Amino acid sequence: MTYTINLKLIKSKREKYGYTQQNMAEFLGLKTRADYFKRENGDTRFKTVELPVLSKKLHTPMKDFFTPRVDKIETDEARMIK
């Protein structure tokens, strides 16, 4: 099983606490707001060292950032139905 970062949760928590994308960029030590925007929108991945900072600032356990992703496995039976 693989896991993905729950970007919707991160965005909703950021908004709940009233942080701007610029604030988050500064917290994470990023150069620009656009660098944070790309992470929050999934264009760039959050780095492992950034997750503890997010956890602290968003008052959320790091484990809550991860959601399981189940890859679709096509079986022979499913192919015959098509």
Results as ranks from 00 to 15, higher is better:
P52L: 07
K57I: 01
N6Y: 00
Y19C: 08
V70D: 09
L51N: 07
S55M: 03
P61A: 08
L28H: 07
T48A: 13
K56V: 05
L30I: 11
P61T: 10
L58K: 05
K56H: 09
K38L: 07
E77S: 09
D76Q: 13
G42W: 09
E77Y: 07
F46K: 00
R79A: 12
Q22H: 08
S12H: 14
M1T: 12
S12V: 04
N23S: 11
T20A: 05
F27S: 00
R14T: 13
V49E: 14
L28Y: 08
K8F: 06
T32Q: 04
E77V: 08
V49Q: 12
I5L: 09
Y17I: 11
R79G: 08
D76E: 14
F37L: 05
S55F: 08
T75N: 08
D35K: 03
R79Y: 07
E40A: 14
K16V: 04
I5C: 06
K13G: 04
V49Y: 06
T32D: 10
Y19G: 07
E74P: 01
T60D: 03
V70P: 05
K13N: 11
H59Y: 10
D71M: 04
T67I: 15
H59I: 10
L7H: 10
T2G: 05
R45W: 05
I5A: 09
N23Q: 03
I81V: 15
A34Q: 13
T20P: 04
N23V: 02
M24W: 01
A78N: 12
P68G: 06
M80D: 14
T60K: 04
K11I: 11
I73C: 03
N23D: 15
L28A: 08
L9H: 10
M62P: 02
A78K: 13
L54V: 03
K47M: 06
R14L: 04
E74S: 10
E26L: 11
V53R: 02
R39I: 01
K72M: 14
A34K: 04
I81R: 14
E15R: 13
S12D: 14
L28V: 11
T48V: 13
R33T: 09
G42K: 06
K16F: 05
Y19V: 04
Y36A: 00
G29D: 06
